[in-house]
């Protein structure tokens, strides 16, 4: 019979047909699952996450098909398990960092502490998230550098996401002279703050005397702004506050120190010491 014809060793034609059928079934299943995943998750997940799911599913199913096909190809699984066990230990030692990154990457995809396009700080690196892959996260720093951070580091470090909330507080400090009227200075600052559309009405802006320092009375300004407008506002507001104070006659002091020199008194000398 043609079905029982030996191809090599103990492998017959029917064995080869079974192997082909197994891989065909795996191929069909991969296509079916990918189609189903795309239909169900296309609106809920990013293209990137979908790609990861697709590749993981395909790898798993083809691996199952391969392991199932090995006995039909005359390869004994018991021998492979022993060899695989030894190889596995070696590979495990060699790839523990990769596995750690891989698992961290999966958790990052599930937890979503950061998203592509967001401004973040991870482990002293500040910039825009360019990509989150299964192994590493790519950050473009504000000075244009490409930084690849392994996901295990992203997962274990503190993450500051600057744009996760829709509003953000801007804190400024301005010093005025001790001889200046602090209340009038606060009124001047308040007029600038009120005229600025990007400073939110609620949460309410706070203007106050923050500290009495060595050379200046420091005024504190805490205002809230839409997170998308925070940086442009920070860039412009301080200059406008300074100009408004100058226009109102206030001077921003520089550090100064009065030094009293002790001098031995000379009989008959009337000059001040």
């Amino acid at each position: 019979m043609i079905w029982n014809r030996v191809i090599y060793g103990k492998v017959t034609t029917i064995d080869l047909i079974i192997v082909v059928a197994l891989f065909s079934a795996a191929f069909g299943l991969v296509r079916l699952i990918n189609y189903y995943l795309f239909r169900k998750l296309k609106d809920k997940s990013s293209k990137h996450t979908l790609d990861i799911f697709r590749k993981t599913t395909a790898t798993l199913l083809y691996s199952v098909a391969l392991i199932s096909a090995l006995p039909y190809l005359g390869l004994k699984l018991s021998g492979l398990i022993v060899a695989g066990g030894i190889t596995g230990v070696v590979v495990a030692f060699a790839s523990q960092n990769i596995v750690s990154n891989l698992i961290s990457g999966l958790f990052l995809l599930i937890e979503h502490p950061i998203k592509i396009g967001q401004a973040v700080q991870i482990d002293q690196i500040t910039g825009i998230v360019e990509n989150i892959s299964i192994i590493a996260t790519i950050i473009r720093t504000y000075d244009g550098l490409y930084v690849r951070v392994p996901n295990s580091r992203v997962f274990t470090q503190d993450i500051t996401n600057y744009v996760n909330n829709i509003v953000r507080r801007l804190d400024l400090e301005i010093g005025i002279r001790y001889s200046n009227d602090a209340e009038r200075a606060l009124d001047t600052l308040r007029q600038v703050i009120d005229a600025e559309p990007r400073v939110l009405i609620n949460p309410e802006p706070m203007l106050y005397v923050k500290s009495l320092d060595d050379s200046a009375v420091t005024l504190g300004i805490n205002v809230w702004a839409p997170v998308t407008e925070w940086f442009p506002l920070r860039r412009e507001l301080l200059l406008r506050l300074k100009l408004a104070l100058e226009a109102a006659g206030f001077e921003i002091p520089f550090p100064q120190r009065t030094v009293w020199l002790a001098r031995a008194s000379i009989p008959g000398d009337q000059s001040p010491v």
Partner: peptide
């Protein structure tokens, strides 16, 4: 005159023209 405000909390609130 244009001004903005936040309706609700800082995480799930709405940014509104005021």
């Amino acid at each position: 005159r244009a001004k903005y405000t936040l309706y609700g909390d800082q995480q799930s609130g709405l940014l509104c023209k005021y």
